[in-house]
Design a protein around this nucleic acid. Sequence first.
DNA 1: CCTGCATTGTTTAACTTTCAAGGAAGGGCT
DNA 2: AGCCCTTCCTTGAAAGTTAAACAATGCAGG
Lengths: 171, 171
Amino acid sequence: MDTAPTSPRDGEPRWLDDAEQRTWLAYLQATTLLEDHLDRQLQRDAGMPHIYYGLLVQLSVAPRRRLRMTELAKNTKITRSRLSHAIARLEKNGWVRREDCPSDKRGQFAILTDDGYEVLRRTAPGHVAAVRQALFDRLTPEQQKSLGEIMVIVAEGLQPKGAGADLPWLR
Amino acid sequence: MDTAPTSPRDGEPRWLDDAEQRTWLAYLQATTLLEDHLDRQLQRDAGMPHIYYGLLVQLSVAPRRRLRMTELAKNTKITRSRLSHAIARLEKNGWVRREDCPSDKRGQFAILTDDGYEVLRRTAPGHVAAVRQALFDRLTPEQQKSLGEIMVIVAEGLQPKGAGADLPWLR
DNA sequence: CCTGCATTGTTTAACTTTCAAGGAAGGGCT
DNA sequence: AGCCCTTCCTTGAAAGTTAAACAATGCAGG
């Protein structure tokens, strides 16, 4: 879109200035490229896209390797609908199984199976290496610190309201 | 996945340390949330997802509001296949039209129509506002600068080889 | 108890993306 | 010309995502 580098006139939207535009474009390109890169890496080595892998990771660090569907959805920032489909697929692969929640009959646990854990164990090193190579290894310690702070700010700003305990990892 | 905070032993992968883990998780959450946020905003206000909007934007700033398919794909970092489908959809909406390239009969131009331009004109202010509110307005000038530098580094690192003139915007 | 509303999770259909394959044109070579 | 290899773009099927609707349960208040 054309951008009028106007002085902030009344009624005019505040356009992105030159530096902001470059930052935003770089952000879009970097995040797209990184996501694609990791998707391919994991599709190749683990047989699933990046988001699915993230689901298994979340389960692997949860107590008893299980989480309620809604919990898991919150942790990974995806919709319950999407999660339902995804877990169905992972279930077919034998990496996750479901179990009814005894205390709340509406509830379902998603549980990481031994097979699922094994896939993680086998592929985690390669994945970590990919993340390092694409991201951390290219940044100075100061940049890493800054990136962390920035992403926490952005994530917190976009939390659905009333999400208090959603980001325990970030504090 | 369990992470053993080991000293770099031989054969062991170099796991992410605590700070890196937090940064990575925050990155994943922030980028997911932001993408979703903008997708919804644009789906609501412009009737298309964020990526499609980005295609129109790229066309709008190109000379004669047109780009070769491959160019457009490179600029937006998506595959040609994906682009073909996307442009087909935008064409149905009347926001883009195609035209054969006279000098290379294999080539196709994607061209922003007046209707397409009008959609942009109408929705750009709201979109910019959304980006500002979710990102720039929350960051200090130093953080904005840092974010830009970091994203350029990451994007450049993930360029497919031989992509020299792909990021003119970033220099 | 029972009514009304919220929460949990799934389902369906429409849409988008990916993957593998392929047609058509360019361009170098003999 | 003929051949080979590459680039440009599209296609169709499979996989993934989204939005809206739905059934079932929980829960608070009368």
